[in-house]
Amino acid sequence: MEKLRQELRRGILVLAVLGSLRQSHYGYSLRKQLQDAGVDIDEGTLYPLVRRLADQGLLISEWRQSEGRERRYYRLSEEGSLLLASLSGEWQQLNSCVGAILGVGRETN
């Protein structure tokens, strides 16, 4: 059961991270923003995911000094923005289709 839940969440998390990084965030602030939005993701999953997206050229990163410490800030690259638009469309379509299926199931029950 847990494995199925994780599989379902995996793809959605990428979409949530890309969506959040339309604005600049460093690792911990990104996690806070996702948490505040109701998407709970542990750090051991989030930080490697962000790095992988950056390695794929979907994010731009830069080191900045703030509050006496250095932090790595990420934001969407041009390629990342295009992917986000494409994935968002896909998500909206899937969401409405699956929503309709689930709705039908509930009505027949």
Binding site: G27, S29, E43
Partner: peptide
Amino acid sequence: EITRELRANILDKLEN
């Protein structure tokens, strides 16, 4: 690169 970033993230969490 990875340990530098990971350290920054852990320090942020501890600070919070």
